[in-house]
């Protein structure tokens, strides 16, 4: 797993995906920072964090799109699957590589908080909670993107499909509101990514939220392992 992790992190930089991801993420988050904090001269960062939800829905497919699809296309998958490593190790190596890059991107929010702290009092507890929420949600989304990448050998297809799926997860509440059947609507409401996230941006933090995002990540990573197992046995 360590070898795969290190190679993937390196590959993010050699393939310039790392630079594109970080540039775009910092650019857009910087814009929201200026707009919602500096412009209104406030140290309340919740507006910026709320906007970042949509930003990561758009950017995470960029991180995950080539992780498995490229292996298949370049036929390097065979080397990976015949090496003495478990399927779980392979999936986790790639997952954590993407998560690492994502976290590097997120760390910028602390820089913004530090800038604000020069002008006023920052509620560091809320900043940490927001950071954690963004981190956990990104962790869940990366697992979703990774699974989709394992299903195709075309990077672009993986990116577009991941974007659509993440967008649907983002709009789960809107979809739930449209469904007239009460119990379905309630069930979908329980799965809402957005309500949990927004709750944190307002300062409401609880353990079930953490568990929710972590288990989504675990389930999708497990499904990715199953995809490879099934392919081997087909």
């Amino acid at each position: 797993m360590g070898a795969i992790y290190r190679r993937e992190v390196g590959a993010f930089f050699t393939s310039s995906i790392a630079y594109i991801f970080l540039c775009v993420f910092w650019l857009i988050s910087g814009f929201f920072f200026v707009q919602s904090c500096l412009y209104y001269a406030t140290t309340d960062m919740s507006g910026m964090f709320q906007s970042l939800f949509l930003v990561i829905v758009i950017l995470i497919p960029l991180l995950t799109m080539r992780l498995f699809s490229e292996e298949k296309k370049q036929k390097t998958e065979q080397g990976l699957l015949t090496a003495p490593v478990s399927l779980g190790g392979i999936v986790m190596g790639k997952y954590f590589a993407a998560l690492t890059l994502y976290t590097i991107g997120l760390l910028m929010t602390f820089v913004y908080a530090m800038i604000l702290s020069a002008y006023g009092v920052v509620e560091w507890g809320i900043v940490f909670a927001n950071f954690l929420a963004l981190f956990l949600m990104g962790g869940a989304f990366i697992a979703v993107g990774l699974l989709i990448s394992a299903l195709t050998e075309n990077q672009i297809a993986a990116a577009v499909a991941s974007f659509v799926v993440l967008m649907l997860l983002f709009m789960l509440d809107n979809i739930a509101a449209l469904i007239p059947v009460q119990w379905i609507s309630t069930a979908l409401g329980y799965l809402s990514f957005r309500n949990r996230y927004y709750a944190i941006t307002y300062g409401l933090f609880n353990v079930s939220t953490v568990l929710f995002y972590v288990s989504v990540a675990a389930i999708f990573n497990y499904l990715t392992v199953r995809v490879f197992e099934r392919r081997r046995w087909s």
């Binding site: 190679r7 050699t14 390097t76 065979q78 080397g79 015949t82």
Partner: peptide
Amino acid sequence: YIGYLPELPPLYVDM
């Protein structure tokens, strides 16, 4: 125990 060279060598071309 196995060293395997598949039909298409599994090389990461940008390394």
